[in-house]
Design a protein around this nucleic acid. Structure first.
Lengths: 234, 234
DNA sequence: CCAAAAGTGTTCGTACTACACCCATGC
DNA sequence: GCATGGGTGTAGTACGAACACTTTTGG
């Protein structure tokens, strides 16, 4: 399978990342599922918005490239980073053949604030994007689908939150991503019986109602089951 | 994101495929989940068994390369072909940096027969492999995990079977892949209510028992939900 | 008739849903 | 006290597991 170099001349290898965060909306008390995009300063698609990314590097693993890119272009560190898909259509770039390994990431609100908006970096609502460069609209659509699908059977929602949180905050994560409201009583029972979170003895005071209990992420439970690829970071 | 060529010099791009089929075992009446491997005739890992694959080509989509490779090296056409993962560890090939886009495929028994065994192509039980070249043991492990996971919530089992089949045959597919026995009565009800299959008026005669009804795959139901990537073949 | 596999019925337990209700706090 | 969200109880329903039972063929 491995021969002399030069076989894949003519194929460029890129790494991009779809970054999700829940950002508070002014005037609303619910958060909005958002993602940061960068404006292209060079052709093709100059001036269009695109996913943050860059070229793969020979001496860096794919996931490391994704992680580094995320930090360099947005200043954020993610709490969850997973490979999404390798997009390899022949005509997806007008300048030649480009295969993009796309990752998707979840970041906490405090990290999302770090990504200061500039003329060339801006947050967009995940469900209402402009026309992006390349096939990036399709990529985001697929990432959104994966996020919502995975939300139903895994614990990735916790990656949106900080160290401690109330059950209502956790429920709001589900509601913001899945875009439907959940019964607080049933939600509480489901998530409490799952053992993915543990009660603390702390409560949040200050609200003009009964102080809610704080919970903590149970580190001994994986956010998601990746089978044999768990703990591998390939 | 796309600039002048040469950025990814030093990274080779390969496409490999994990091919699953259920093959009858001599002396047993149940089938065995198997996959074909090719013997490496060149270094590195010369003489070791490896997944069928080849280099990506600039004028061919990734899935087309996988499909063509499958046909060329084993003579088979698959009924199901899906991208598995992009493996990009730095040290996965001793000769230099190689990123492999890996696909996984399901083939029908009649196709599996086409893959005649030779000195350099041979079928192996999926759960009992020798030490393979590169990181291919990990890749197969992951493919197996995906197959078994997906078996539980999708209809891919149908990709192992021909045009028509009995419910017992379908149940045997599940039992062979998941390695556990299922209650025939409950299995029947579950699968009949799923609308993924339709009854025909034909029955299988010849057995010395009540002739089982033949069913047919309902083409209007997708084997699996790929979200926005359905019908895209990227 | 008997054996064997196809196919049906019934019961039980679990898990999710909907919604009524009580609790603890600030004002 | 009242309003507000936190938190508990409970009845209804849907679905899967287990298993008894009936049906249809070949010999």
């Amino acid at each position: 399978m491995v021969g002399h170099p030069g076989h894949t001349n003519g194929i460029e290898l890129a790494v991009s990342t779809v970054i999700f965060a829940l950002r508070p909306r002014e005037g609303f008390d619910s958060s909005l599922l958002s993602l940061p995009l960068v404006r292209r300063t060079r052709g093709p698609f100059k001036g269009r918005w695109a996913l943050p990314g860059g070229w793969a590097s020979p001496d860096e693993s794919l996931v490391a490239t994704a992680s580094r890119n995320l930090l360099e272009t947005t200043g954020m560190k993610s709490t969850y980073l997973e490979q999404l898909y390798a997009f390899g259509d022949i005509a997806r770039s007008p300048t030649g053949r480009v295969v993009s390994i796309v990752y998707w990431a979840l970041v906490r609100p405090e990290q999302a604030v770090e990504a200061e908006e500039s003329e060339n970096v801006q947050w967009f609502p995940a469900d209402d994007l402009p026309e992006l460069a390349f096939d990036h609209n399709l990529i985001v659509e697929y990432a959104l689908w994966r996020l919502r699908t995975k939300m139903e059977y895994s614990r990735i929602a916790l990656a949106f939150l900080g160290e401690t949180f109330t059950l209502t905050e956790l429920r709001h994560v589900y509601e913001a991503v899945l875009q439907k409201s959940l019964d607080p009583a049933n939600f509480r029972r489901q998530v409490e019986s799952s053992k993915a979170i543990v009660r603390t003895d702390d409560h949040v005071t200050g609200g003009r109602h009964r102080p809610p209990r704080l919970y903590r992420y149970n580190a001994s439970v994986e956010l998601t089951d990746s089978g044999p690829l768990s703990h591998h970071q390939i």
